[in-house]
Amino acid sequence: MAKIIVVTSGKGGVGKTTSSAAISTGLALNGHKTVVIDFDVGLRNLDLILNCERRVVFDFVQVLNKEATLKQALIKDKRCENLHILAASQTRDKDALTKEGVGEVLDELSKEFDYIICDSPAGIEHGALMALYFADEAIIVTNPEVSSVRDSDRIIGILQSRSRKAEAGETVKEHLLVTRYNPVRVEKGEMLSVEDVEEILAVPLLGVIPESESVIRNSNQGTPVILDEKSDAGLAYKDMVSRLLGEQVDYRFLEAEKKGFLKRMFGG
């Protein structure tokens, strides 16, 4: 039986797809058979981040409509053999995502994979609800910023009331992932700290990804940032995946780099 994990946030642009790509690649690198599904029907982007946009022949919606088999639609990642991708369709056929259909596909994938990562669209509409409905665990991606924190709380409420687990009287295991964290601004009192976000949302922390230029640099090239050994964000994702797998890993990149005397005097 596969573990189903939804990557969700409510708000758009906080790093769900970047995180989904990094997490699924990380799990695959650790030897787990992993499939990542793009639930953003009409606005697919996971294929771009994972550099397989030109290899999409069949998509998730076609599988749901029985126009293609799962086997035909799954794209094998070229960098890690344990990773498969199921792309969203680019047409606006959101009604194709039915509870029964999605459930069937997940059941079938469950037989073959260890982890199923569901990359949720933004918002709290149908696509987002379908992405989280079957989840065993949820990774809540949050930026240290007011609107993102509020929307995260909203999606947590939905996880606790409208997921399959909630309907069965069980709980979805929640994890907090803070992204685009800037320790320099936190020290100046200009940005919510990780502790603040954790306290407000009351969800246990799984990872903190520092704001980093390397994220866009890697997405430009279609490389999941977790494969970039020189990137602080990539290393932070690696730590996060290890924690997800049950290891104890210390947090890095939470404090601003100490500046030298000259820099402190003259700025920079």
């Binding site: 910023e145 007011v146 509020r150 709380d153 009192g189 200009e190 940005m191 919510l192 005097m265």
Partner: peptide, 25 residues
């Protein structure tokens, strides 16, 4: 930098954000 010491002190915006979020949430 040394020049910023002359700037006016203001309440850290992060603590305002935290307060507002706690209430609305």
């Amino acid at each position: 930098s040394i020049f910023s010491y002359f700037k006016k002190e203001q309440k850290a915006s992060a603590s305002i954000a935290k307060e507002r979020l706690q209430i609305i949430v």
